[in-house]
Simulated assay, not measured.
Amino acid sequence: MKKTTLIIGITTLLMNFSVLAQNEPIEFGLKAGLNYSNLIIDDNIPAETNAKIGFHLGGFLSFKLTDNFRIKPELLFSTQNAEIEFSENINMGDPNDPVFGKRFKADIKQNLILLPIMADYYFSENFDLEFGPQFGFVINQDITDNNNDFSFGNDDYDKFEVALNVGAGFTFSENYRIGLRYNYGITERDNNKSSVLQFGLSYKL
């Protein structure tokens, strides 16, 4: 029920933007770039994480509300990866368990569909700041133990995420914009939150 309400709310919001911007041209384009992603884990879990490189690609719409203010929804495919290393021995309760008393690392690879809804304020024709929420859905997840001694489940995991984005962009020609954006997960998925730095290039069609 909550997921249905969220989808209806997002659709209504985008329709309202379309009405507000009906007297202005709606711009659209493509974007792609790199992710530097990590996980912020629960304090009760004895582990450390390391960031890894991924990528994102997709498209965007831009609704011009005033000369300086725009609303820009995006639809992106994103790969977000991290490495987790347990920093203390793990007692599974069974001395015969293969990971009893061992330390291990694991690679976490996730593919997501992201829907950021950004508010862009242009201080000039070239420079803008952006802020807004992001809704994410994990398509699939793969966790691989680097020591080959522990089996992780890759099917039972939290799939929905809400995050906040903040960033800045520089438009260096009529059609091209480079941007730097940070997104922070405000909802937990499997006792961790996402932390992703994105560098992207946008092309207005």
Results as ranks from 00 to 15, higher is better:
123 F>A: 07
61 L>W: 12
17 F>I: 10
8 I>G: 06
59 G>L: 02
89 N>D: 14
159 K>Q: 13
168 A>I: 06
94 D>E: 02
84 I>P: 08
66 T>E: 08
44 N>T: 12
150 F>Q: 09
139 I>V: 11
13 L>E: 02
177 R>Q: 09
60 F>E: 06
145 D>W: 00
113 I>E: 00
72 K>M: 14
165 N>V: 04
194 S>V: 10
5 T>W: 04
203 Y>W: 10
7 I>C: 08
87 S>G: 03
198 Q>A: 08
123 F>P: 02
186 I>V: 14
70 R>T: 09
7 I>D: 02
166 V>C: 06
121 Y>C: 01
181 R>F: 14
171 T>Q: 11
27 E>H: 13
47 A>E: 07
25 P>A: 04
131 F>S: 03
8 I>D: 01
114 L>Q: 09
57 L>H: 07
180 L>E: 08
111 N>V: 08
139 I>E: 00
72 K>H: 12
2 K>L: 09
93 G>C: 10
128 D>R: 15
66 T>S: 13
120 D>L: 09
127 F>S: 07
49 T>E: 09
46 P>N: 07
87 S>L: 02
125 E>T: 07
77 F>N: 02
199 F>N: 02
120 D>M: 04
129 L>W: 11
77 F>I: 07
16 N>R: 09
123 F>H: 05
45 I>C: 01
140 N>Q: 08
170 F>Q: 04
120 D>T: 06
89 N>V: 15
139 I>G: 01
124 S>Y: 00
119 A>F: 14
9 G>W: 00
188 E>Q: 14
19 V>A: 09
158 D>S: 15
83 E>T: 15
151 S>N: 13
113 I>C: 08
192 N>Y: 05
198 Q>H: 04
117 I>N: 03
13 L>C: 06
193 K>G: 05
31 K>D: 06
105 K>Y: 06
15 M>Q: 07
162 V>W: 01
82 A>F: 11
41 I>F: 02
28 F>V: 09
110 Q>G: 02
201 L>M: 07
7 I>H: 05
20 L>F: 15
126 N>D: 13
154 N>S: 02
163 A>E: 00
36 Y>N: 15
89 N>R: 14
52 K>C: 06
78 S>I: 00
80 Q>A: 14
167 G>T: 03
62 S>G: 13
3 K>Y: 10
33 G>I: 10
27 E>F: 11
139 I>D: 00
153 G>K: 10
11 T>Y: 04
67 D>L: 11
134 Q>R: 01
145 D>L: 01
